[in-house]
């Protein structure tokens, strides 16, 4: 069988997100090959009439149901819609999604306010996860696959204007460009 089909089978039974490295070990393929095959699989899902979708987060992949069938599946699973996010939580979550992995200090700086409580809340809701960076001695935050599923995206890179907002320098350049005409 092709690598693509092997990966699809593995992700289908795994349910939980699998790392590229894990998948490469399981299929005795190179990480690069795994990534290429998975991008192909994702293209199949997005182009064809399929009921599944592939999500990617921090080089972990997971198979889910397709966004178009969301309502139908939700009805079947009797899944409760999650409660609304408060404005500050939404802001923090957006910044983490676009700028993750991001340190708490940087998040505080962008929002101009201490975000400890919001971070705790988002962690509890499973929308973000923290990882300790040993060399910087600081916790870094990224969104979880659950966040990606919540938005119905393939990965954070699908967020609107992701490339522009992801890089600090780019933001300043873009801003500078949009300001210059008024000078």
């Amino acid at each position: 069988m092709s690598l693509k089909s092997q990966l699809e089978s593995l992700l289908f039974v795994a349910i939980k997100p699998l790392a590229v490295k894990e998948l490469a070990d399981l299929t005795s393929a190179k990480a690069k090959e795994v990534e290429t095959a998975l991008e192909e699989l994702n293209n199949d899902y997005q182009a064809g009439e399929r009921g599944l979708a592939l999500i990617k987060n921090n080089s972990h992949y997971q198979i889910t149901t397709a966004a178009d069938n969301s309502e139908l599946v939700q009805d079947f699973l009797k899944d409760e819609t999650s409660s609304e996010l408060s404005q500050p939580s939404l802001e923090a979550l957006t910044i983490i999604a676009y700028r993750g992995p991001i340190a708490k200090l940087e998040l505080d700086r962008i929002r101009g306010v201490n975000c400890s409580l919001i971070i705790r809340n988002l962690l509890l809701r499973g929308l973000i996860e923290e990882k300790f960076n040993k060399s910087k001695e600081e916790y870094y935050y990224t969104v979880t696959p659950d966040f990606i599923r919540f938005l119905g995206l393939h990965s954070v890179a699908d967020l609107p204007d992701y490339a522009q907002l992801n890089q600090a320098e780019t933001i300043e350049q873009t801003l500078a460009a949009s300001l210059n005409p008024s000078l």
Binding site: I15, A53, I55, Q62, T64, T65, A66, A67, D68, S70, E71, V73, Q74, L77, D79, T81, L85, L90, L93, T94, A97, I148, R149, F150, L151, G152, L153, L159, P160, D161
Partner: peptide, 14 residues
């Protein structure tokens, strides 16, 4: 924009 995406309720299920 993120809120607008959430409002579309395109949840992906496991």
């Amino acid at each position: 924009k993120v809120q607008a995406i959430i409002n579309q309720k395109n949840f992906l299920f496991l």
